[in-house]
C-alpha cells in the first residue's frame, strides 16, 4: 500500500486517510475500502497536501499529531486551496484540537481517539453522501 494509491475504480466517493501510524492507517484504509470508498493514503501532512492537490478527494480523514506537518495546519492548507470539500480530524485530545483549529479560523469535525469505526463511517458518509 503506497501513498496515493487508488484502491478501486468507479464512481465511488474518494477518501484520503492520513496517519503516521502504519497500523492504524492500513486498518482504516482497508475498512473504508470494504464499505465502498476509493481510498488514498498519506503518512504525514505534507504528503497529504500533495495527494489532495493531485487527486481531489471528497473527504479527508486525518490524524492531528504527525511529523513535519500536523493535521490542523494541513487541514488549513487544503481548505484554503479548496483541494477537498471536507476534512475530519482524529485526536486523543479533541478539545485541544478544536481550540487550536478555531485559532486558525477552522471549525473542523474532530473525532475522538480511540476511534469507533461505526461513528467514523457515519460522519464520513453524511459528509460525502448527503441525504442518504
Amino acid at each position: 500500500m503506497t501513498k496515493g494509491t487508488v484502491r478501486s475504480s468507479g464512481k465511488k466517493p474518494t477518501i484520503l486517510v492520513v496517519d503516521d501510524d502504519f497500523d492504524l492507517r492500513t486498518e482504516l484504509a482497508e475498512l473504508f475500502g470494504r464499505v465502498g470508498y476509493d481510498v488514498l493514503e498519506a503518512s504525514n501532512g505534507i504528503e497529504a497536501v500533495e495527494v489532495a492537490r493531485e487527486k481531489r478527494p471528497d473527504v479527508v480523514l486525518m490524524d492531528v499529531g504527525m511529523p513535519q506537518l500536523g493535521g490542523v495546519r494541513a487541514a488549513e492548507i487544503m481548505t484554503l486551496l479548496r483541494h477537498t470539500e471536507q476534512v475530519v480530524l482524529m485526536s486523543g485530545n479533541p478539545e485541544m484540537v478544536a481550540e487550536a483549529a478555531s485559532h486558525r479560523g477552522l471549525a473542523p469535525i474532530v473525532l475522538n481517539k480511540p476511534l469507533s469505526f461505526d461513528i467514523c463511517r457515519r460522519v464520513i458518509d453524511s459528509l460525502v453522501k448527503p441525504g442518504q
Binding site: 482497508e30 475498512l31 470494504r34 480511540p114 469505526f117
Partner: peptide
Amino acid sequence: TVIAHEISQPLSVIAMAVKNAKL
C-alpha cells in the same frame, strides 16, 4: 497529552482491526 495519544493509538488500531476481521 502524549500519553493520551500514545494509548489511544493502539486502541484505535485494535478497534479497526476488529471491525475489519468482522467484515
